[in-house]
């Protein structure tokens, strides 16, 4: 983990509520796909945890949805704004278990962390299939970006306005895969948990206090004991997940 100042070099709308922000600074502590960063905002007490979409030598990209006053504030920040950010948080996805034909399933703003994951898996020579699930056509983002990486991409919309009508699990049925990686709303994770025929990894979300394992604000029960979503997660293996309700 590292605390440092980052400069916004891009902050653009991808849809009416989803934005892409590129931050320039010391990204050396960002190691794995599926990690998150924690951003301090003027006038907000708690930092805002946002998953990493992509990282290169000098920048980190996040794709975030405006859901409250904090993310709304972020969406209005001009290029050049400097932010106090903690980076290198969370465990991230374990790529070593992917097999040859990994399937990546993202729902809504669960899509972004899969981007860097897809990039790395493809670089490792894996045959990557991606299913991106959205409610409706207007909410779709990053379809072309995943295609440009060389992944086979399917898009589902719940209302059928684009791609396959239904949920990501409807597309999943017809795909041959060796392992799965997913991130999205909890009902989607549960559905994938039931529908999947292989092992896999799921990234979870919870309201956090610190984001680095100190406060126990985001604890959950798993089959292998109590875990902190922020430090022991956000990625959990299918075998350890305990659904509580």
């Amino acid at each position: 983990m590292k605390q440092s100042i980052y400069k916004i070099i891009e902050n653009i709308a991808l849809t009416s509520t989803v934005f892409k922000m590129v931050l320039e600074g010391d990204v050396s502590d960002i190691k794995n796909s599926g990690e998150f960063i924690n951003i301090k905002l003027e006038g907000k007490y708690l930092r805002r945890p946002i998953s990493v979409c992509d990282v290169d030598a000098t920048t980190v990209t996040i794709v975030y949805k405006v859901v409250g006053t904090g993310t709304e504030q972020m969406s209005k920040m001009p290029v050049g704004t400097e932010l106090d950010v903690l980076v290198g948080l969370g465990n991230g996805y374990d790529l070593s278990l992917s097999g040859e034909k990994p399937l990546l399933l993202g729902g809504g703003v669960g899509v972004p962390p899969l981007y860097n994951l897809a990039k790395r898996l493809i670089k490792d020579g894996k045959e990557v299939t991606v299913v991106l699930g959205f409610n409706t056509k207007d909410e779709i983002f990053y379809e072309q970006e995943f295609k440009d990486l060389g992944a086979t991409v399917f898009v589902t919309t719940a209302d059928g306005t684009y791609g396959i009508k239904g949920f990501v699990t409807d597309a999943m049925k017809n795909i041959d895969y060796s392992y799965f990686y997913t991130c999205g709303p909890e009902p989607m994770l549960k559905a994938i948990y039931k529908a999947s025929t292989t092992s896999g990894q799921m990234s979870f979300e919870e309201r956090m206090g610190c984001g680095f394992g100190a406060c126990m604000g985001c604890s959950c029960k798993t089959l292998t004991g109590y875990k902190r979503i922020c430090k022991d997660g956000p990625v959990m293996k299918k075998e350890e997940i305990l659904w509580e309700d």
Partner: peptide, 20 residues
């Protein structure tokens, strides 16, 4: 003790609430 169910954290103006 596991503690309380989540969410355990809430943002406030100039502070936070926890119910760990």
């Amino acid at each position: 003790r596991f503690g309380n169910p989540t969410p355990r954290i809430a943002e406030c103006k100039n502070g936070m609430i926890n119910a760990v």
